[in-house]
Design a binder for these strands. Structure first.
Lengths: 146, 146
DNA sequence: CATGAAAATCGCCACGC
DNA sequence: GCGTGGCGATTTTCATG
């Protein structure tokens, strides 16, 4: 992937609804050339999708937390992500190195919803949890430097 | 915010480039009514932006980590987010409750780039760091349940 | 707030280089 | 791969109920 592709990806990761016309202007190419490149970036899996970001507070999920997970049985099968996939409060699930096995990022409506969620996670997955509550978010989802 | 707005936000957070025409069809409204609502959702700060998501591995940032931060001086001013804002490897910065003060999500090209980044963070902010390396990501940036 | 229609803009494809 | 041209679709605005 070279210069122009990087520029296109960078522009789209800052404004996912930028028109091909504007994209072409800022990339210094014709519209059809940009069109071709964007389609290729999509099919090649460089661009994995487009999303609208929304303020979690406004949509009723003001409480964010990171939940670190340690299985009770260290030899248990590693299928926790699938087991938890249906729990929509979980925004992200990372397998990690270190003392614990997974880190989840979760969003809920209230402390008691967090309590319920943790209970649910422990039950579904037979794990212990350690929760770090987010007090404020200075920034998140910043576009990568490409 | 009521039913139709929630539906619109939900659709756009799954496909940020969905056309107004398609949005209108799925929301059961005319195109211009949907247009009006989307503009309002944007200006009201419900929808905060649109982004293309891209595969960090493909763009040369295969290593993700969470960096937990504890200031050496507990009485130091709380301006760490601003001090670190220029460091583009930092994708997110959360102030958190608990033993540590902040959690950063970072993406780098290699272990040695991570080493440099940690050094940079410690120098800029006069803090100690604890780093949890991500081994694999089952999912992230999942749209919220609205 | 919703609608429908008009005007401007855009997405997309075919073609030639 | 890139550019040009053109047509149908989409976006955007506006007048109206």
């Amino acid at each position: 992937m070279e210069e122009i592709d990087r520029r296109i990806v960078s522009l789209l990761s800052r404004n996912g609804r930028m028109s091909f016309t504007e994209l072409a202007r800022q990339a210094g190419l014709s519209v059809s050339a940009v069109h071709q490149r964007v389609r290729r970036l999509e099919t090649d899996g460089v661009i994995t999708g487009y999303v609208a970001l929304c303020d979690p507070v406004v949509i009723g999920l003001p409480l964010t937390a990171f939940v670190s997970i340690k299985p009770f049985d260290p030899a248990a099968p590693d299928d926790l992500p699938e087991r938890l996939a249906g729990v929509t409060a979980i925004e992200a699930c990372h397998s990690v190195a270190g003392d614990e096995s997974y880190i989840l990022k979760v969003r809920v409506a209230s402390p008691s919803a967090l309590e319920d969620l943790l209970q649910q996670i422990r039950t579904i997955a037979n794990v212990s949890t350690r929760t770090t509550v987010v007090l404020s978010t200075a920034y998140e989802n910043r576009p990568p430097e490409i």
